[in-house]
Design a binder for these strands. Structure first.
Length: 568
DNA sequence: GCCGTTTTCGGCCCGACTGTTTTCAGTCG
């Protein structure tokens, strides 16, 4: 039974832990890196890694070989990697936390544990206070100070959350715009994970060139949104905004701007793979340029695309830079043509004031959609607000507003709830009367969620599964959906799967949406808007679709309505 | 531990900064 297998996240966590403990033991660094890479690959794999290992197919994934595959099988059969269980008995759990403190690493953590006999966080605090850390070679007063500061900060701000792209994207754009308008600015760009449109971020990176770096830094730390200047130097600064977002600005030399933008956009894994590939071909790649080792010649450029071109790759869109096959594809001309925001022709999941939580009327939502340039819009209010005659009243209003809008298609839909037993909470004849039906999980996420959404797909009235895993970023993990079975059922029944564009949903997530696309499932990007402004959410959904390697032809609502829903 | 358009053995990204040091190891991104 697939549902009894450990989740990829949990398997990856054991390898991450094993890597940490091996590192504390001082074992071969490349072995440690190999475990971490494998863990990363597992997290980004949509199918069950445990299932793959049982079938002997996990080693087909890059970074996973025979040994790691065997260890995954150990997890399935005994719950724990043997090598990990042994080490957990020897190494006190808090020592792993030592090396997570900023400034401390595995070497220092092990030294403190083995030479001072410190085994707990509290013991570490005391050792620092009593000035015992400085008795160790290579450690001094400054280290003690750093340890105490780090421990205090940890108490103040425990377990930091990553902020949502939906909050960071407008914020970083505002900063980039403000800096571009400054006389000391030349080139300015977002960089880092926000440029790759990752769903969450730790800080927002901006890079720039300037004839007068000091003046640009001064303008940056003086921006109205800045509440605190965390660091400030001649070429870089870090600030915290009033709403708690961290921004990093780096001012870089113009002649290497392209190389630097490439470097600071990441991801780390993408850059490492790029550089390893370079080494194999006699090229040393850094943020300043590409050195041809044989001649010593250095290629640096203001143009990021020129970096990829020089290295023999097609330009890799930032959203794909995760070392998930994009380099090979860029070398062989196999990169996909990614969907763009302007490809969307309509929205197929959103709410009006007929839903208690909707803030725009049917007419307001329709007018706003028309103004966005859409050709169609489907109002999908929650089923439970459409009882006792309200379904008919809502249908009349949609029909009346639709008349006034001329050629624009205003459609009548519903978001029907999938109950705990897998049935839908609206009668089939009512669903059949709608132009479009979205079915979603909203509760009882632990009660056979895979079976429930698959049952919904079997209903011929259901066109789309909304936010398939029902996750909420920073709030709850998604339901434990067996995504491969769900995708197979979607393909079989022709039911579309949603990329929900709400900032804290983005569900399907990137890896799952990529799998769905590869399997030939139909994908819909929808706003799930509850207000006029939220129709713009789809920008996040399109970004997620790009991270999933999807082209416009794989997304249903890039097509005209007659092709989305051929007449029954 | 993984991997291969030199390789099934011998490699495995690059540079900056920090704190502790008289030349560098450890950490970080």
């Amino acid at each position: 039974m697939a549902s009894t297998l450990p989740r990829n996240q949990d398997v990856a966590e054991q390898f991450e832990l094993l890597a940490d403990l091996l590192e504390l033991e001082g074992s071969d660094a490349f072995r440690v890196i190999a475990y971490r890479r494998a863990a990363q690959r597992m997290r980004e794999t949509a199918g069950s890694i445990a299932q793959l290992a049982l079938e002997g197919k996990a080693k087909e994934l890059s970074g996973i070989g025979k040994t790691i595959e065997e260890k995954i099988v150990q997890i399935v059969s005994t719950g724990r990697i043997d090598a990990l269980a042994q080490r957990e008995e020897r190494i006190p759990p808090d020592v792993r936390l030592f090396m997570r403190l900023p400034g401390l690493g595995p070497k220092t953590a092990a030294k403190i544990w083995l030479q001072l006999g410190v085994t707990t966080i509290e013991g570490l605090r005391q050792a620092a206070e009593q000035e015992r850390l400085r008795t160790l070679p290579g450690l001094g007063a400054k280290t003690e100070e750093n340890v105490l500061r780090a421990l205090a900060a940890q108490v103040e701000a425990p377990a930091e959350e990553r902020a949502l792209l939906g909050q960071g994207l407008p914020a970083v754009r505002a900063v980039v715009e403000a800096l571009r308008g400054h006389p000391a600015a030349d080139l300015v760009s977002e960089a880092g994970s926000v440029r790759r449109r990752r769903e969450t971020f730790r800080d927002l990176d901006v890079i720039a060139t300037s004839p007068d770096p000091e003046a640009l830094i001064a303008a940056f730390v003086g921006l109205e949104l800045v509440s605190e200047v965390a660091a400030r130097g001649g070429t870089k600064a870090t600030v915290v905004s009033h709403d708690g977002l961290r921004f990093d600005l780096r001012v870089v030399p113009p002649e290497s701007y392209g190389n630097l933008l490439q470097h600071f956009t990441g991801s780390k894994d993408h850059n490492v793979a790029l550089r390893e590939d370079g080494v194999r071909r006699g090229l040393s790649i850094s943020e300043y340029g590409v050195t041809t080792l044989e001649t010593g010649e250095v290629f640096s450029t203001r143009d990021e695309a020129a970096v990829y071109e020089f290295l023999g790759y097609a330009f890799v869109p930032p959203e794909l830079r995760e070392n998930a096959g994009e380099l090979e594809a860029a070398r062989t001309g196999a990169l996909p043509e990614l969907i763009e925001l302007s490809d969307l022709r309509g929205d197929l999941h959103l709410h009006s004031t007929w839903s208690a939580d909707g803030r725009g009327t049917v007419e307001e939502m329709a007018e706003a959609a028309k103004a966005r340039g859409y050709a169609y819009l489907c109002i999908t209010d929650h089923s439970h607000y459409l009882r006792d005659g309200r379904l008919e009243a809502q249908a009349e209003e949609i029909a009346a507003v639709g008349e006034r809008l001329g050629r624009f298609h205003l459609l009548r839909g519903v978001e029907v709830n999938i109950r705990a037993d897998g049935s839908l909470d609206m009668a089939d004849e009512d669903l059949a009367a709608c132009d479009w039906v979205v079915a979603s999980l909203h509760s009882a996420f632990d009660r056979s969620p895979t079976e429930r959404i698959m049952a919904a797909m079997e209903n011929p009235n259901v066109d789309l599964i909304g936010h398939p895993t029902a996750r909420k970023l920073n709030r709850r993990a998604g339901a434990d959906i067996d995504i491969e079975r769900a995708i197979a059922k979607a393909v079989e029944t022709g039911t579309a799967l949603e990329i929900n564009s709400q900032a804290d949903r983005l569900d399907l997530r990137d890896a799952h949406a990529r799998n769905a696309g590869e399997a030939g499932a139909r994908i819909v990007i929808s706003s799930d808007a509850h207000s006029v402004g939220a129709l713009g959410n789809v920008e996040l959904g399109v970004a997620q679709a790009r991270r999933a390697w999807l082209g416009a032809d794989q997304v249903l609502n890039t097509k005209p309505w007659r092709d989305v829903k051929p007449r029954r």
